[in-house]
């Protein structure tokens, strides 16, 4: 499980490690910005998710697959499932409430610091997509991150399905 790089002992690059510590958080914040800006500006769930995926891959570069596994408290399949549930739910809930599939609405809310903010229910769909992409990146690193070399591993690495299910 926790095989490190093939060289003896983990050879870590101090500069890389330290800069990634700073970068990791800032890229995640940027990805959240993309997620929320997505409705009327460039961005959106898929772009935000990919940006967060980039942050996760930076963590992989510095610490290997273990660092990715410990990055989030939730297991990757739960992140993916929740994302799918949220985005599929935004299609179903309007039907239950008597509208059309995927129908959405918006509402302006006055917030103390941000001023008037327009919330759209499509944001929920974007959050779902974001979670799906992040879960997928986590799963991919968990499945293929440890390079065990050309031997038959016990658990067949089944690549997670359903990429590109969202029509952005």
């Amino acid at each position: 499980m926790s095989t490190q790089a093939p060289t003896s002992g983990p050879q870590r690059l101090v500069i890389l490690d330290q800069s990634i510590k700073v970068l990791y958080q800032s890229i995640l914040v940027l990805s959240l910005y993309f997620l929320f800006a997505g409705h009327n500006l460039p961005g959106g769930g898929f772009v935000g998710g990919l940006t967060a995926g980039a942050a996760v891959s930076l963590r992989y570069v510095s610490g290997g697959a273990m660092a990715v596994r410990t990055a989030f408290r939730l297991p990757s399949h739960i992140v993916l499932g929740l994302g799918l549930l949220v985005s599929a739910g935004t299609a179903l809930i309007p039907v239950v409430l008597g509208g059309a599939v995927l129908e959405h609405g918006d509402r302006e809310v006055g917030l103390p610091i941000f001023g008037d903010v327009k919330f759209v229910s499509a944001l929920a769909f974007d959050i779902g997509v974001y979670l799906v992409v992040v879960g997928l990146v986590l799963m991919a690193f968990a499945a293929f991150g440890d390079d065990l070399g050309p031997i038959e591993s016990t658990a067949p690495p089944e690549p997670p399905d359903g990429t590109g299910r969202e029509a952005s």
Partner: peptide
């Protein structure tokens, strides 16, 4: 997006 997923 779809091509990306399938290529992966």
């Amino acid at each position: 997006v779809i091509t990306f997923g399938v290529t992966a």
